[in-house]
Structures are given as C-alpha cells and as structure tokens.
C-alpha cells in the first residue's frame, strides 16, 4: 500500500483519479487542486508517487517535478497531460519524471502506470535498504 499525491487544478479530474486509485487499488490518495500547497504537503508527508497535471496555473508540472526532487530525490512523478502533443510529456520524462499519461486515459492505463511506478518505488527503496545494510556490515 502506497501513498499517492494527486495534483490537478481541475477538482473533477482529482475526484476521478482518487476514485479510480482508491476503487481499484489499495493505495491512499491525497489530492490538491492548488499546486502551491504541494511544498507544504511534501514537507509534512512522504509520498511514494505524485500524479500531477502538466499545465496548471501558478506552478506547472515541470516546476512541481523540480520541487519534489528537492524533498525526495527518488520521488516518482507520473505526468498527466491534456495536450494532444506528447512532446512536453516526453521532455518531462527526460527531465526525471517516471512516466506520463495523456488525457483522456482509460482507468487501466492509470492503474497500470501506478502499479508500475509502485513496483519501481518498492525496488528503489529495497535497494537503498540493502545498500545501507551492506554499508553497516
């Protein structure tokens, strides 16, 4: 069970994402439609995955990616974009996002992406733990 932060300026989209994740997986979802609150949320809590819209007022998905990396260098970002063109999303992956989804997406696409991210997260954390133990020994 992981903790997921969903960020989108559209509350309906947040509701949909939350309903899909919580309805079809056992992950917990925290949502916010104000990107400016993300810093505060990140400072309080540690999230396994951040699902964020690319284009938002105040702070876009790319800035959010930069911010998240500051709090957790292993932070996983799933970029969701409504742009038909995927060029920006591809650029986001190049700059450190884990994966991207284009709107509209089917729920399986979202669940698959989240599942893939969570497994990766688990592997990364496990790897870190093993490295720690190895260093101790």
């Amino acid at each position: 069970m992981g903790r997921i932060l969903a960020v989108d300026d559209e509350p309906d989209m947040l509701s949909l994402i939350k309903m899909i994740i919580e309805g079809y997986s056992d992950h917990d979802v925290t949502t916010t439609n104000n990107p400016m609150e993300v810093a505060e949320l990140l400072s309080k809590e540690r999230f396994d995955l951040i699902v964020t819209d690319l284009k938002m007022p105040g702070m876009d998905g790319m800035e959010l990616l930069e911010l998240a990396k500051k709090y957790d260098e292993d932070a996983l970002i799933l970029m969701v974009t409504a742009f038909g063109s995927l060029a920006t999303a591809e650029e986001a992956v190049a700059r450190g996002a884990f994966d991207y989804l284009s709107k509209p997406f089917r729920k399986e696409q979202l669940l698959l992406a989240i599942d893939k991210a969570m497994r990766w997260r688990e592997m990364v954390l496990q790897n870190k733990e093993l490295k720690k133990q190895l260093n101790k020994e």
Binding site: M13, L16, G84, S85, K103, P104, F105
Partner: peptide, 22 residues
Amino acid sequence: LSAGVAHEINNPLGVILGFTEI
C-alpha cells in the same frame, strides 16, 4: 488553435470518459 482546443477538450473529456468507465 488545435493545441489550445485539445487541452481544453481533453480535460473534460478525460473526466467524462473516466467516470463513465467507472
């Protein structure tokens, strides 16, 4: 124009199709 329109339509379309699927 299309880029702007696509973004504006894809958002609500995403919500509609998402909830419909659920």
